[in-house]
Structures are given as structure tokens and as C-alpha cells.
Design a protein around this nucleic acid. Structure first.
Lengths: 349, 349
DNA sequence: GTATTTGTGTAGATCGGTCTACGTTTTTCC
DNA sequence: GGAAAAACGTAGACCGATCTACACAAATAC
């Protein structure tokens, strides 16, 4: 029953090749001071013994060749898209990527990040993390860190974000061009004190700026709620109770937009004839023909690989912080259409 | 600039508390031979220094308190649901969960699993992995392993799967009760030689058995394709080209069902009046009111936590393999309805 | 009162690598 | 041809924990 063949160690390889441990280590790391002949011999021995270096042991002194990706919610498929980009880039640089999830708030996030540091991961990618910018600065000071989905500036870590001001602009311009004037925006409010740089803040700012730019300053209509399905649904229900509801909404995220569509559906309001809805993120569900949600695409794969590239640079020694934004694009589908005639405002009879 | 405060090690704690390293280690592990007084002193020192044990170093001799979850595709939200269950259970047992993804085939999967072993993870959870049962047996022999989404029997690892025979049965019974007779099933065919125990095989078997049980043996209609969106779409297009197409399809997965719905939509065929579609997995998109896909729910959270429980047992020493199945349930929504009258078979005019 | 057991704490090897310091050749340079 | 430099290889400390073996004191047994 003891089929458990013990793993070959660096010592076994050294013995088999008739050289020292240090020599094998050099070959492993591609370090200076190895003759071609020895390199060949050692590599032959490694192959013969099926040797694989223990990443654990390597991490004790050197680096662990591991990147930690911290994710708040895996159910959000946009995160998976980012991860795809990260992995593609990390693979090229010889790093393994491990993903840690923590959905239940800041303290769980803290724990997960500490768990990653306990395992001496070489760098951290934080996707839309909780916490204040100062919390993140502290993490950045202890390990190379790149934050995805939050805007800079930052001192100790890099950021990669979608240009949310531009994204909100695309939405408002699109709706205004369709003749809408009463364009509402659902703004997410979290539990935290300081939301600087978080998407909800930047998207709201972009919305306001774009409304002004389109001469709709008097129509600015910020509704506060939460950016998930039921949040979007509830916000839409409230809007429809008004005497004069808007004719279009920039829902902030696709999830919220899907909830809004549900509320509209249940209220018997036709989309897009009577009401236009725009999401943000371009998640998979938005592309379904049955849904056909107009949304803003953030080119997640690009963002992911850019983030991984920045992280590797940082691991290799870069000190100055870099903040990048990636240009989003509008994907027009079938939840947006011309504004209903002013005579018959959308709303319940 | 050297804010980089060095992490406290077990030695620092020992010095601060005026005891030996071994003593601190004992406190850490809750091992025998520690007086209350010393325990209190050491714990105070740990708190004072903000000490956190290095999981890396612990893993060198003892265990790493890390479980590896191997996932084929994070885009599939059902995996995230399983992971939720896994994490909840692992947290209770004091294990950290890290997720590794490998979407591009068997060799990448192999690499990922080896990367997990290189990091001395205490146990592996493989979600719907590639490879033959024998490949998996080998992994199971080297590390505690639980495989999710494939059926047993197995020798060296445990399995947790949904009862796919029962699930297919629920679907066929439901459709038959609605008066359907020409019920097709889209069977996934992978690239591999040996697909024993994989869901596509078991669901197809369940379909055949249920057709026979319902007296529809002559109507058995297995269509081969791939279980993703375009696969479902293409399969449905082919079906509709037949002179006498089926009136209902058991698409195998929700993704394939969504593709099938697209094809029906484009062909101008009304669902469910003219054609019924059933998915499998009950993914998020299926629940959208715009989609309302009838599907089989696998209670993923339960499966996940069951799997994690089995894995912890195995790490703690259980040797015999356990194979479990979890009962699925049918979620009837609005893509299934009574069979169209026989006089006007569904199909293109 | 001595022998044994039980409780408490420590020293030091160990895990599997990395990396510095140094010894020995070989090559290059004038 | 001798000195300096470059190339190659090795010994052994080190990373931060675990864990075995053992020393010593106090408690219990007879």
C-alpha cells in the first residue's frame, strides 16, 4: 500500500548527478557560474528523477513565484474575465496565480490578504477591494500590489481602472442623442466612510459632468441605492412611483440594470419603447438575446493583463506608483431607444 | 523609506516572552505540555508583537493549512456556487482556500495540480476536472483528494456529484407529463477517450432510462454536440432543419440551453408555445425574468460544503473512498409548456 | 524515603530550498 | 611567463516553523 513514492529533493538530484546541492540550485535558478556540461548533467538527472522543486521551500529564502488575486465576489463574472487576462500574462512571466475570495466585508478581506502574505506570495492583485485608500496604502507598503477597479492616485501601489468618467459620458451622450432628457443615475452607496476612487464615485461624477455638457444640468437625478439585482429593482420601483418618472436610467452596473428591467417588466412598461436602461460591465447575461442590455464594456482581459504586467514590474523593483485607466466602449443593444414623446411620459397609467 | 517593518518570527516571540522557540511552537499548535501561565505569557507576547506564523514555514514540516480548489472555468457561475459552499466549511475547520484555474486542457490542468502540490497544499478539491479516472486515481494516491461533479466509484479519492440520472429523469418526466413525445437530448462529447463517470455520460444514461420508463423508447433522440452556448445553438439549428423536429429538448446544461433559445428566437419559433427547452445547473442567467429557463438545480452550496467536509476527513486520516450523490430538483420556469398539437408540429413553415 | 510517574520546558535536528563566501581552475592580458 | 581576471564549483549558514529526545521538578506510589 505504500505506493507513496517520496518526492525527489534537490539533494537527490545532486547525488544522482554527482554534484553539490548548490550547483543544482544554480541550474534551477539559471544563476551565473554553471558550465554547459554540468547544466546538461543536472538537467538529465532532474528529468530522470522526475524532480520538481518545492515552491514552499523556495519561498523560504527566495521568492515563491506565486501571485495572489484577491476577489470580492466570484459570482460576478466580470471578475473571471479580469482573471483570464491576469493568468495569461502571469504565465508568460513564470508566475502561478492563486485566487482567494472573501465576500463578507472588510475584516474577512483583511484575513484573506494576511493569509496570502503568510504564504509569502510575491505580489497581490486586489480586485475591487473594500477599505479606504489608506488601508490599501498600508498593504502596498508591505508587498508589491496592484489594485484593479479603483482609481488613483496612490503612493505605494499601482491602479488599473476603467475610465469611468468616460464610460458615464458615453452612456449619457447616447441617451441624450436619442432625445432623452430625464436621465437618472443609480449611485451605489456602500457602508464605508471614505469612498474616494471607488467606481460609484467616479461614475457619478462622470454622469454629472456629462449631463452638464449636454445642457441637462437641471435634470440631474441621482438616486442612491445598492448595485446589485434587488437594489436595482427597488430603485426602479421607487422611481416609477413618482408623478413624473425619468425616461432613461444609467443603472451603474449590469446587475442593477437587470433588477431594473425586472421591475419595469413587472410594472408592464415596455423597454425600450417607454423606458431605456443602460448597464455597466457588459457581463455575460447582458449579451443574451433575451436580455440584450445596452452596456459599457471595460475590456476586462486587457485590464487584467495590464495589471499583471504592472505587478511583475513592481516585483522586479519599480518604486514609483503608476495609475492607468483603460478606455471603455459602449455596446448598444436593445434596451435603449428613442425617448418617448413628451406628451405621453413613461409611467404607470 | 524603510517602513518595511520586519515580520515578527517565532524567535522574536520567544525572546519577548523569555521562553524557548519550542514552547512558542507548542502554544501555537495547542500541543501538550504547556502550563496555563506560560500559555498566557506567550499569547500576550504574540499579540504585543503582532505575530503571525508563516504558513510557508509551517508547511515545511507540518501542514500548510491550505486547500487547493481546482477549477476548469470560472466563467461558469455554478463553480462559484460550489466554491461558496467549500469556503464556508473550510473556514470552520481552519483551512484557507485558494483557487487555481486552468481552462486550456489536460496538460494545463496537470501543471496547475502540480503547482498546488509544489506548495504542499493539504488537500485538493477538483471541480469537473479533465482526464481519465485513472489520472485522478494517481492524484488521489499522492494527496487527499475530492472530485466534484464526476461520479464514482473510485479507489483513492472521494466523489461528490449531483444525481444526474435522477436529474435527467426529472426533466423527461416533466416534459412527458406535458404531453411531449419527441424529446431530444443534447449529449456533450469531449476530446477524451474515456469519459466514464462524467456528467455527459450519466445524464445521457438517465435520459435513455427515463424515456424507456415513459414508454418513449422509440423516440429516443441523442444529438451529439458541445455543451456551451454556440454548441447549443448549432445543435438546435440542425434539429430545426429536420422534416420532423422534436418538440422539446433536454439541453444538458444551461449554457447549451441558452444557445438553443437563441437559435429558436432567430428562427422565429415561440417558446414554450411551439418548443420547450430545459437546461441543467440553474445558473444565474436562467433565473432572469427575461430568460426564465426551466432547469435542474444541483444545490451547489451543499455539494461544496459536503465535499469540503469529506476532504477534511480524508486529511485527518480516512482511507476508504466515499462516493456521494446529492439529489437535484427541477425548477420549472417559462421555457416549458404543453406539447403543441400533433397536427401542427413545431418547425419552420 | 526511595522509585516511579506526570508535568513542564529546552536543545537541536529537520524540512528543501537559496545564497554568500571562498577555493580551485582556466583564461586573458601585457 | 607571471599576474590578474573570469569561470566554475562547493561548503555551510540561513529562512521560520515542527517535532523528537531529553532534562528537570513536582506529584504520586509503595
Amino acid at each position: 500500500m505504500s505506493e507513496q513514492v517520496k518526492r525527489a529533493t534537490i539533494g537527490d538530484v545532486a547525488l544522482h548527478a554527482g554534484v553539490s546541492k548548490a550547483a543544482v540550485s544554480k541550474v534551477l535558478r539559471g544563476a551565473y557560474g554553471v558550465s554547459e556540461a554540468m547544466k546538461a548533467r543536472v538537467e538529465a538527472s532532474m528529468a530522470a528523477l522526475g524532480y520538481r522543486p518545492s515552491a514552499l521551500a523556495r519561498g523560504m529564502r527566495g521568492s515563491s513565484f506565486t501571485l495572489g488575486v484577491f476577489v470580492v465576489d466570484l459570482q460576478n463574472t466580470f471578475m473571471s474575465v479580469l482573471i483570464e487576462g491576469i493568468r495569461a500574462e502571469a504565465e508568460v512571466s513564470g508566475y502561478q496565480v492563486f485566487i482567494g475570495e472573501a465576500s463578507r466585508g472588510l475584516s474577512q478581506q483583511q484575513q484573506m490578504i494576511e493569509a496570502m502574505l503568510d504564504r509569502k506570495m510575491d505580489g497581490l492583485l486586489l480586485i475591487a477591494p473594500f477599505g479606504t485608500a489608506e488601508d490599501l496604502e498600508e498593504i502596498g507598503r508591505s508587498t508589491p500590489t496592484v489594485v484593479l477597479g479603483r482609481h488613483g492616485p496612490s503612493k505605494s501601489y499601482d491602479t488599473v481602472a476603467s475610465d469611468d468618467v468616460a464610460g458615464s459620458g458615453l452612456i449619457v451622450d447616447h441617451l441624450a442623442a436619442l432625445g432623452h432628457r430625464r436621465i437618472a443615475h443609480l449611485k451605489h452607496v456602500g457602508r464605508e466612510r471614505n469612498e474616494d476612487g471607488m467606481p460609484q464615485v467616479v461614475r457619478a461624477r462622470g454622469y454629472v459632468e456629462a449631463m452638464v455638457r449636454n445642457g441637462l444640468e437641471s435634470e440631474i437625478d441621482l438616486i442612491e441605492g445598492r448595485w446589485h439585482q434587488t437594489g436595482g429593482q427597488r430603485a426602479m420601483e421607487l422611481m416609477l412611483e413618482r408623478p413624473l418618472p425619468p425616461t432613461a436610467v444609467h443603472a451603474g452596473t449590469d446587475m442593477a440594470a437587470l433588477g431594473a428591467l425586472t421591475a419595469l417588466h413587472e410594472a408592464g412598461i415596455r423597454v425600450p419603447e417607454e423606458f431605456s436602461v443602460v448597464g455597466y460591465d457588459n457581463v455575460f447575461a447582458a449579451s443574451l438575446p433575451q436580455v440584450a442590455l445596452t452596456s459599457v464594456d471595460q475590456s476586462g482581459v486587457e485590464m487584467g493583463s495590464l495589471a499583471a504586467r504592472l505587478l511583475v514590474e513592481r516585483i522586479q523593483g519599480r518604486r514609483e506608483a503608476v495609475s492607468t485607466v483603460v478606455a471603455p466602449s459602449l455596446v448598444v443593444r436593445r434596451t435603449t431607444g428613442p425617448a418617448p414623446a413628451a406628451i405621453a411620459p413613461a409611467g404607470r397609467s
